[in-house]
C-alpha cells in the first residue's frame, strides 16, 4: 500500500509545478507594474504595497480556481484512482496538497510584500513608526484579526473545494443510475439542481447556527466569540461535506476513461 507520506508527495508535485508557473506570471506582472510606475513617477514615489496586493489577490484567486480544477481531475483519473490506498486517504491527500499549494502562494505574496516594503514602502514604514508603541489591546486586536483572517481563508477555501466536489460527485452518482441518453444535458441539469438544493441547505444551516449561538450566549454581538463560533460552524460543514464525498467516491464515483 502507498503510505500517506508518499501519496502526499506524488500529489503535491504537479500542483507545486503549476503554482510555480503561475507565480512566474505573478512576479512578471508585479515587475512590469513596478517598471511602469518608476517610468511614470520616478523611484522616490514608488509604492509597491498596492501593486503586490492587487496582483496577489488576482493570482491568488486564479491559483484557487486552478487547484479546484486539479482536485476534480485527480479524483476521476485512472492514474490516481489506481493507487493502492483507501479512498479516504486519497481524498484527504488531494485536499491537503491543494491547501498547502494555496498557502504556498500566500506565503510568496507575504514575501513579495516584505521585499516591496523594504524597497520602497514609505507609507508602511511611516505607519509602523507611528504604531510601534501600540497598546497591548491594540496588539491583541491585530493578532486576532490576523489569525482569524488566515483561518477563515483556509476554511472557506476547503469549504469551496469540498462543495465543488460534492456537486461533481452528486451529479456523477445520480446520472449513473439514469439511462444513457443525453447524459451531458442530464448532468448539467443535475448540477444546477444540486447547487440550488445545496444553497438552500447552507442558508438553513447558517440560520440554525446563528440561532444556536444566540441561544448559547444570549447576546449575539460579542465579536470574538462570534467569529470563532461561525468558524467552527463552517468547519463542521466542511467535515460533513468531505465525508459525503468520500462515501460517494468509495461506493459510486468511477474514474473517467
Amino acid at each position: 500500500m502507498t503510505s500517506f507520506n508518499h501519496l502526499f508527495r506524488v500529489m503535491w508535485r504537479p500542483k507545486f509545478r503549476s503554482m510555480n508557473q503561475l507565480l512566474f506570471f505573478n512576479l512578471l506582472a508585479v515587475v512590469v507594474t513596478m517598471v511602469y510606475q518608476i517610468w511614470r513617477r520616478g523611484f522616490a514615489q514608488l509604492e509597491m504595497i498596492s501593486t503586490v496586493t492587487i496582483w496577489g489577490s488576482i493570482f491568488g484567486f486564479v491559483a484557487f480556481v486552478l487547484l479546484a480544477r486539479q482536485n476534480e481531475q485527480v479524483v476521476i483519473s485512472d492514474t490516481y484512482r489506481l493507487l493502492p490506498t483507501s479512498d479516504t486517504k486519497l481524498y484527504l491527500a488531494n485536499l491537503g496538497t491543494s491547501l498547502v499549494a494555496l498557502l504556498y502562494v500566500g506565503v510568496i505574496q507575504v514575501i513579495l510584500l516584505a521585499v516591496g516594503t523594504a524597497m520602497s514602502g514609505n507609507i508602511i514604514r511611516m505607519w509602523l513608526q507611528l504604531n510601534i508603541h501600540m497598546s497591548a489591546a491594540a496588539w491583541h486586536d491585530l493578532a486576532f484579526y490576523g489569525t482569524s483572517a488566515v483561518l477563515w481563508g483556509i476554511v472557506v477555501a476547503l469549504w469551496a473545494w469540498a462543495v465543488i466536489t460534492l456537486i461533481h460527485f452528486g451529479t456523477n452518482t445520480i446520472s449513473a443510475f439514469l439511462p444513457n441518453v443525453q447524459q451531458r444535458i442530464i448532468k448539467v441539469v443535475l448540477a444546477i439542481i444540486l447547487t440550488g438544493v445545496l444553497l438552500r441547505f447552507l442558508t438553513w444551516f447558517a440560520e440554525l447556527e446563528s440561532k444556536l449561538y444566540a441561544a448559547f450566549t444570549g447576546i449575539a454581538s460579542v465579536l470574538e466569540g462570534g467569529v470563532w463560533f461561525d468558524l467552527l460552524g463552517l468547519v463542521v460543514v466542511v467535515i460533513v461535506v468531505a465525508t459525503a464525498n468520500i462515501v460517494m467516491m468509495h461506493r459510486w464515483v468511477e474514474a473517467k476513461y
Binding site: 500500500m1 504537479p14 481531475q73 485527480v74 483519473s77 485512472d78 492514474t79 490516481y80 489506481l82 493507487l83 493502492p84 490506498t85 483507501s86 479512498d87 473517467k256 476513461y257
Partner: peptide, 20 residues
Amino acid sequence: ATRRAFVSFSEALQGFRPGD
C-alpha cells in the same frame, strides 16, 4: 483498496499533463 496493491493495470496515463 487492498486489491489494487496486487494489480498492475495498463492505464492510459490521463492523470499526467502532455508536457510531463
